[in-house]
Every structure is written in C-alpha cells, then in structure tokens.
Simulated scan of single mutants.
Amino acid sequence: QLEQACFDAGVELWPGYSHVVFADVDQPTVYLAWQKGFAWLPIIIGLLVTTVLPPLLGSLVWWLMPESLKNLISGIVNMGIMLLVMLLISKLMPSFTQDKEKVRKVKQVEPEKLEEAKA
C-alpha cells in the first residue's frame, strides 16, 4: 500500500532500484529509496554566479589596476556622461533663433494661359 501511495504521489525511483519501499525480513524495518524530482541547487548556484560573480571580479580587477589607468577610465566615463547630459539639454531647451519658414516658389503663368482664363 505504501508503494502504491508513493507512486500515486509522483515519487521517482532511485536509479538502479525497481521499488521505492523495501522491507527488512530480519527486523521490523522498512527502507525507502527515492529521489527528488528536480534539483534546484544547480539553478540557484547558477543564478548567484551570474549575478554576484561579475561585480566581484570587476571590483577585484579595479583593485589590481594601476592608479593612472583608473584615472583614465574615470575620465572617459565622466566625459561620456557630460556629453550625454549636454545632448539632452540641447534637445530639451528651445531654440533662441526662429526657424526659417520655407519659401514657396510661385510658378509663372504664361500670358496665353492668362488670357484664356479671363475669357
């Protein structure tokens, strides 16, 4: 009954075993041989490695870099941020000069067509 209840609950067999429940003939003991359905530990470790390891490695590399290289990288990043802010400000502020209106070109009418239009 215990074997059937385990199968109904979805318990997976241990690799190499044909049953989940084993009774000991010499002693009043019952052994269960089963395995978990899905191992979450590798997924959790993988998520931690992909989220925590890059910043740790980056901080280690930053710590090992010479000061002159750190200053160069900081300067490049600061310059990029300043350029981005200047671009945003120039796009958001209105222009001080008025936009030139497009000049429409007038087609010249030939005199023959003008006299035809009058008639």
Rank of each mutant, 00 (worst) to 15 (best):
V77T: 00
Y31L: 06
L41C: 06
I81Q: 05
V106E: 10
V20D: 09
G75S: 07
V103I: 03
A117C: 12
E12W: 05
L83A: 00
V11L: 03
K100V: 08
D99I: 11
G16W: 04
G58F: 14
D8S: 15
K70L: 04
T29A: 01
P55M: 12
N78S: 05
K113G: 06
P15S: 04
G46Q: 00
N78L: 01
P55F: 13
V21I: 07
E101S: 03
Q108A: 01
F96S: 02
W63F: 09
K91C: 00
T50F: 11
A33H: 10
L83S: 08
G16A: 00
W14C: 08
D26I: 01
I81K: 05
L72Y: 08
K105D: 10
N78A: 02
K118M: 15
W34S: 15
V30Y: 02
L83Q: 05
K107L: 10
P111W: 02
P42N: 08
M93E: 06
V49H: 09
K107R: 03
S90A: 01
V85R: 00
K70H: 03
E110T: 04
S59L: 10
P55K: 03
K70A: 02
A117N: 13
Q4I: 08
P55G: 03
L69E: 15
Q108P: 13
L88T: 02
V49L: 13
W34L: 14
W40K: 06
Y17F: 04
A33I: 00
G10I: 04
I44P: 02
E12C: 05
I45W: 04
Y31E: 06
D8R: 15
F22A: 05
F96R: 08
I44C: 08
P111E: 13
S74W: 09
G16K: 01
G75P: 00
I89M: 07
P66Q: 11
E112N: 11
I73W: 03
V30T: 00
